[in-house]
Protein backbone atom coordinates (compact mmCIF):
# COMPACT_ATOMS: atom_id res chain seq x y z
CA UNK A 1 0.00 0.00 0.00
CA UNK A 2 2.77 2.37 1.07
CA UNK A 3 4.64 1.42 -2.11
CA UNK A 4 1.79 2.23 -4.37
CA UNK A 5 1.23 5.55 -2.67
CA UNK A 6 4.82 6.64 -3.09
CA UNK A 7 4.75 5.46 -6.69
CA UNK A 8 1.68 7.56 -7.36
CA UNK A 9 3.25 10.53 -5.60
CA UNK A 10 6.34 10.18 -7.75
CA UNK A 11 4.37 9.96 -10.95
CA UNK A 12 2.32 12.99 -9.94
CA UNK A 13 5.53 14.86 -9.23
CA UNK A 14 6.88 14.12 -12.72
CA UNK A 15 3.57 15.13 -14.13
CA UNK A 16 3.91 18.48 -12.37
CA UNK A 17 7.52 18.85 -13.52
CA UNK A 18 6.52 18.37 -17.12
CA UNK A 19 3.71 20.90 -16.82
CA UNK A 20 6.16 23.46 -15.42
CA UNK A 21 8.77 22.76 -18.11
CA UNK A 22 6.14 23.03 -20.82
CA UNK A 23 4.84 26.29 -19.40
CA UNK A 24 8.34 27.73 -19.17
CA UNK A 25 9.06 26.78 -22.77
CA UNK A 26 5.90 28.53 -23.84
CA UNK A 27 6.78 31.58 -21.77
CA UNK A 28 10.23 31.92 -23.38
CA UNK A 29 8.60 32.33 -26.76
CA UNK A 30 5.77 34.51 -25.51
CA UNK A 31 7.91 36.81 -23.38
CA UNK A 32 10.39 37.33 -26.22
CA UNK A 33 7.56 38.29 -28.54
CA UNK A 34 5.98 40.55 -25.93
CA UNK A 35 9.28 42.24 -25.16
CA UNK A 36 9.82 42.81 -28.86
CA UNK A 37 6.38 44.30 -29.36
CA UNK A 38 6.67 46.44 -26.23
CA UNK A 39 10.10 47.70 -27.26
CA UNK A 40 8.83 48.59 -30.73
CA UNK A 41 5.70 50.15 -29.28
CA UNK A 42 7.55 52.32 -26.76
CA UNK A 43 9.79 53.70 -29.52
CA UNK A 44 7.32 53.65 -32.36
CA UNK A 45 3.86 54.60 -31.09
CA UNK A 46 4.61 58.33 -30.70
CA UNK A 47 5.60 58.42 -34.39
CA UNK A 48 2.37 56.83 -35.63
CA UNK A 49 0.18 59.48 -37.14
CA UNK A 50 -1.77 60.20 -40.29
CA UNK A 51 1.25 62.06 -41.57
CA UNK A 52 3.45 58.98 -41.12
CA UNK A 53 1.21 56.95 -43.43
CA UNK A 54 0.79 59.64 -46.06
CA UNK A 55 4.34 60.97 -46.40
CA UNK A 56 7.22 59.89 -48.59
CA UNK A 57 10.65 59.19 -47.12
CA UNK A 58 12.64 62.28 -46.32
CA UNK A 59 16.00 63.22 -44.89
CA UNK A 60 14.14 64.89 -42.03
CA UNK A 61 13.04 62.12 -39.67
CA UNK A 62 9.95 63.93 -38.48
CA UNK A 63 8.71 64.56 -42.04
CA UNK A 64 9.48 61.07 -43.27
CA UNK A 65 6.75 58.53 -43.80
CA UNK A 66 6.01 55.11 -45.19
CA UNK A 67 3.63 55.95 -48.04
CA UNK A 68 5.78 54.52 -50.84
CA UNK A 69 6.71 51.55 -48.63
CA UNK A 70 3.25 50.38 -47.67
CA UNK A 71 1.85 50.95 -51.15
CA UNK A 72 4.83 49.00 -52.54
CA UNK A 73 4.33 46.16 -50.07
CA UNK A 74 0.60 45.94 -50.84
CA UNK A 75 1.11 45.87 -54.62
CA UNK A 76 3.91 43.31 -54.43
CA UNK A 77 1.70 41.12 -52.24
CA UNK A 78 -1.15 41.35 -54.77
CA UNK A 79 1.14 40.15 -57.56
CA UNK A 80 2.56 37.42 -55.31
CA UNK A 81 -0.89 36.13 -54.36
CA UNK A 82 -2.21 36.33 -57.93
CA UNK A 83 0.70 34.21 -59.13
CA UNK A 84 1.31 31.79 -56.28
CA UNK A 85 -2.31 30.86 -55.52
CA UNK A 86 -3.43 29.52 -58.91
CA UNK A 87 -0.08 27.85 -59.60
CA UNK A 88 0.23 26.36 -56.14
CA UNK A 89 -3.36 25.18 -55.87
CA UNK A 90 -3.28 23.65 -59.35
CA UNK A 91 -0.01 21.86 -58.59
CA UNK A 92 -1.34 20.62 -55.25
CA UNK A 93 -4.58 19.34 -56.81
CA UNK A 94 -2.67 17.60 -59.56
CA UNK A 95 -0.29 15.91 -57.15
CA UNK A 96 -3.09 14.74 -54.85
CA UNK A 97 -5.86 13.86 -57.30
CA UNK A 98 -4.31 13.13 -60.68
CA UNK A 99 -0.66 12.12 -60.35
CA UNK A 100 0.08 8.40 -60.35
CA UNK A 101 1.68 7.24 -57.13
CA UNK A 102 5.10 6.21 -58.43
CA UNK A 103 8.74 7.09 -57.77
CA UNK A 104 8.53 10.11 -60.05
CA UNK A 105 5.80 11.66 -57.92
CA UNK A 106 7.69 10.76 -54.77
CA UNK A 107 10.76 12.52 -56.15
CA UNK A 108 8.73 15.62 -56.96
CA UNK A 109 7.20 15.60 -53.49
CA UNK A 110 10.58 15.40 -51.79
CA UNK A 111 11.87 18.23 -53.93
CA UNK A 112 8.93 20.47 -53.13
CA UNK A 113 9.52 19.90 -49.43
CA UNK A 114 13.19 20.75 -49.96
CA UNK A 115 12.35 23.88 -51.94
CA UNK A 116 10.45 25.20 -48.95
CA UNK A 117 13.72 25.14 -47.00
CA UNK A 118 15.89 26.91 -49.58
CA UNK A 119 17.19 30.23 -48.17
CA UNK A 120 15.27 33.15 -49.60
CA UNK A 121 18.40 34.86 -50.92
CA UNK A 122 18.83 31.98 -53.38
CA UNK A 123 15.46 32.87 -54.86
CA UNK A 124 16.66 36.45 -55.09
CA UNK A 125 19.75 35.46 -57.03
CA UNK A 126 17.72 33.30 -59.37
CA UNK A 127 15.22 36.09 -59.92
CA UNK A 128 18.04 38.54 -60.68
CA UNK A 129 19.33 36.28 -63.44
CA UNK A 130 15.99 35.13 -64.77
CA UNK A 131 13.41 37.90 -64.36
CA UNK A 132 15.63 40.99 -64.31
CA UNK A 133 18.13 40.11 -67.04
CA UNK A 134 16.68 37.20 -69.03
CA UNK A 135 13.07 38.37 -69.24
CA UNK A 136 14.02 42.04 -69.00
CA UNK A 137 11.37 42.81 -66.43
CA UNK A 138 13.70 45.22 -64.65
CA UNK A 139 13.62 46.09 -60.98
CA UNK A 140 9.86 46.28 -60.97
CA UNK A 141 6.89 45.39 -58.82
CA UNK A 142 6.23 42.50 -61.21
CA UNK A 143 9.72 41.06 -60.67
CA UNK A 144 9.41 41.35 -56.90
CA UNK A 145 5.94 39.79 -56.87
CA UNK A 146 7.03 36.87 -59.03
CA UNK A 147 10.14 36.31 -56.89
CA UNK A 148 8.15 36.15 -53.68
CA UNK A 149 5.55 33.99 -55.44
CA UNK A 150 8.24 31.42 -56.25
CA UNK A 151 9.43 31.65 -52.67
CA UNK A 152 6.05 30.77 -51.19
CA UNK A 153 4.95 28.39 -53.95
CA UNK A 154 6.19 25.26 -52.13
CA UNK A 155 4.32 26.36 -49.00
CA UNK A 156 1.11 26.87 -50.96
CA UNK A 157 1.47 23.48 -52.64
CA UNK A 158 2.06 21.74 -49.33
CA UNK A 159 -0.88 23.53 -47.67
CA UNK A 160 -3.15 22.62 -50.59
CA UNK A 161 -2.17 18.97 -50.42
CA UNK A 162 -2.71 18.82 -46.67
CA UNK A 163 -6.13 20.40 -47.06
CA UNK A 164 -7.15 18.04 -49.87
CA UNK A 165 -5.86 15.01 -48.02
CA UNK A 166 -8.16 15.73 -45.09
CA UNK A 167 -11.23 15.18 -47.28
CA UNK A 168 -12.52 11.64 -46.76
CA UNK A 169 -12.22 9.33 -49.75
CA UNK A 170 -15.89 8.47 -49.37
CA UNK A 171 -16.85 11.93 -50.65
CA UNK A 172 -14.96 11.34 -53.87
CA UNK A 173 -16.34 7.83 -54.25
CA UNK A 174 -19.87 9.11 -53.76
CA UNK A 175 -19.30 11.67 -56.48
CA UNK A 176 -17.84 9.11 -58.88
CA UNK A 177 -20.72 6.78 -58.11
CA UNK A 178 -23.11 9.43 -59.37
CA UNK A 179 -21.23 9.55 -62.64
CA UNK A 180 -19.20 12.69 -62.07
CA UNK A 181 -15.87 13.01 -63.87
CA UNK A 182 -12.67 13.63 -61.99
CA UNK A 183 -12.69 17.33 -62.83
CA UNK A 184 -16.32 17.65 -61.73
CA UNK A 185 -15.46 15.96 -58.46
CA UNK A 186 -12.52 18.26 -57.89
CA UNK A 187 -14.44 21.38 -58.84
CA UNK A 188 -17.66 20.66 -56.96
CA UNK A 189 -16.39 18.77 -53.93
CA UNK A 190 -12.66 18.66 -53.33
CA UNK A 191 -11.89 22.34 -53.88
CA UNK A 192 -14.86 23.80 -52.03
CA UNK A 193 -14.28 21.61 -48.98
CA UNK A 194 -10.59 22.35 -48.84
CA UNK A 195 -10.85 26.11 -49.51
CA UNK A 196 -10.57 26.92 -45.81
CA UNK A 197 -7.37 24.98 -45.38
CA UNK A 198 -5.91 26.28 -48.63
CA UNK A 199 -6.64 29.91 -47.83
CA UNK A 200 -5.18 29.53 -44.35
CA UNK A 201 -1.98 28.14 -45.83
CA UNK A 202 -1.88 30.87 -48.46
CA UNK A 203 -2.26 33.65 -45.93
CA UNK A 204 0.40 32.22 -43.64
CA UNK A 205 2.72 31.93 -46.63
CA UNK A 206 1.94 35.53 -47.62
CA UNK A 207 2.64 36.77 -44.12
CA UNK A 208 6.08 35.21 -44.43
CA UNK A 209 6.60 36.88 -47.81
CA UNK A 210 5.61 40.30 -46.47
CA UNK A 211 8.64 40.43 -44.18
CA UNK A 212 11.17 39.22 -46.75
CA UNK A 213 14.02 41.60 -47.44
CA UNK A 214 16.98 39.64 -48.77
CA UNK A 215 15.59 38.50 -52.16
CA UNK A 216 14.21 41.97 -52.87
CA UNK A 217 17.51 43.66 -52.09
CA UNK A 218 19.18 41.14 -54.40
CA UNK A 219 16.94 42.01 -57.32
CA UNK A 220 17.62 45.68 -56.64
CA UNK A 221 14.67 47.14 -54.79
CA UNK A 222 15.26 50.81 -54.19
CA UNK A 223 15.85 52.67 -51.02
CA UNK A 224 14.72 56.20 -51.70
CA UNK A 225 11.58 56.54 -53.72
CA UNK A 226 9.34 59.54 -53.29
CA UNK A 227 6.54 58.84 -55.74
CA UNK A 228 3.79 56.28 -56.14
CA UNK A 229 3.41 53.73 -58.93
CA UNK A 230 0.90 54.45 -61.69
CA UNK A 231 -2.69 54.26 -60.56
CA UNK A 232 -4.39 50.97 -61.50
CA UNK A 233 -7.56 52.84 -62.50
CA UNK A 234 -7.50 55.55 -65.16
CA UNK A 235 -10.03 58.06 -66.40
CA UNK A 236 -9.61 57.04 -70.05
CA UNK A 237 -10.71 53.79 -71.65
CA UNK A 238 -10.04 50.95 -70.88
CA UNK A 239 -10.07 52.42 -67.34
CA UNK A 240 -7.71 49.78 -66.02
CA UNK A 241 -3.98 50.25 -66.27
CA UNK A 242 -1.27 47.72 -65.54
CA UNK A 243 1.60 50.10 -65.91
CA UNK A 244 2.21 49.90 -62.16
CA UNK A 245 3.54 46.38 -62.64
CA UNK A 246 6.65 47.79 -64.29
CA UNK A 247 7.20 50.63 -61.81
CA UNK A 248 10.13 50.83 -59.41
CA UNK A 249 9.21 50.28 -55.80
CA UNK A 250 10.31 49.96 -52.20
CA UNK A 251 8.79 47.80 -49.44
CA UNK A 252 8.37 48.10 -45.68
CA UNK A 253 11.31 45.94 -44.54
CA UNK A 254 13.70 47.77 -46.86
CA UNK A 255 12.47 51.15 -45.63
CA UNK A 256 13.03 49.96 -42.05
CA UNK A 257 16.48 48.65 -42.87
CA UNK A 258 17.41 52.00 -44.37
CA UNK A 259 16.17 53.93 -41.34
CA UNK A 260 17.92 51.65 -38.88
CA UNK A 261 21.23 52.17 -40.65
CA UNK A 262 21.10 55.94 -40.38
CA UNK A 263 23.16 57.80 -37.82
CA UNK A 264 20.33 59.93 -36.43
CA UNK A 265 18.44 58.53 -33.46
CA UNK A 266 15.14 59.99 -34.75
CA UNK A 267 15.25 57.66 -37.76
CA UNK A 268 15.52 54.65 -35.46
CA UNK A 269 12.19 55.69 -33.95
CA UNK A 270 10.72 55.81 -37.46
CA UNK A 271 12.04 52.31 -38.04
CA UNK A 272 10.36 51.11 -34.84
CA UNK A 273 7.07 52.66 -35.91
CA UNK A 274 7.36 51.06 -39.36
CA UNK A 275 8.14 47.75 -37.66
CA UNK A 276 5.01 48.09 -35.60
CA UNK A 277 2.93 48.73 -38.72
CA UNK A 278 4.45 45.68 -40.42
CA UNK A 279 3.75 43.59 -37.32
CA UNK A 280 0.13 44.74 -37.29
CA UNK A 281 -0.17 43.95 -41.02
CA UNK A 282 1.09 40.41 -40.33
CA UNK A 283 -1.20 40.01 -37.32
CA UNK A 284 -4.21 41.11 -39.38
CA UNK A 285 -3.32 38.58 -42.06
CA UNK A 286 -2.95 35.80 -39.51
CA UNK A 287 -6.21 36.82 -37.85
CA UNK A 288 -7.87 36.65 -41.25
CA UNK A 289 -6.50 33.14 -41.71
CA UNK A 290 -8.06 32.01 -38.45
CA UNK A 291 -11.37 33.66 -39.29
CA UNK A 292 -11.50 32.09 -42.76
CA UNK A 293 -10.75 28.66 -41.39
CA UNK A 294 -13.54 29.09 -38.85
CA UNK A 295 -16.08 30.22 -41.46
CA UNK A 296 -15.36 27.53 -44.00
CA UNK A 297 -15.38 24.81 -41.39
CA UNK A 298 -18.79 25.90 -40.24
CA UNK A 299 -20.18 25.70 -43.76
CA UNK A 300 -19.09 22.17 -44.47
CA UNK A 301 -21.93 19.75 -43.90
CA UNK A 302 -21.21 16.20 -44.80
Amino acid sequence: MEDIRSLIARRKFFDGVFAVVGLLSLLVGLITLLALILDLAVDGVPRLSWQFFTSFPSRFAEQAGILSAWVGTTLVMIVTAATAVPLGVAAGVYLEEYAAKNWMTALIEINIANLAAVPSIVYGLMALGLFVYQFNLGQSILTAGLTLALLILPMVIIATREAIRSIPGAIREASFALGATKWQTVRDHVLPYSTGGILTGVIIALSRAIGETAPLITIGALTFIAFLPHAPVTTEAPYVSFQWLMDPFTVMPIQMFNWVSRPQEAFHLNAAAAGLVLLVMTLIMNGLAIYIRFRFRKRIKW
Partner: peptide
Protein backbone atom coordinates in the same frame (compact mmCIF):
# COMPACT_ATOMS: atom_id res chain seq x y z
CA UNK B 1 10.37 64.19 -62.72
CA UNK B 2 10.78 61.01 -60.68
CA UNK B 3 14.08 60.15 -59.05
CA UNK B 4 14.99 56.81 -57.48
CA UNK B 5 18.07 56.28 -55.33
CA UNK B 6 19.37 52.82 -54.41
CA UNK B 7 22.24 51.61 -52.26
CA UNK B 8 24.43 48.87 -53.67
Amino acid sequence: VKVTVGIS
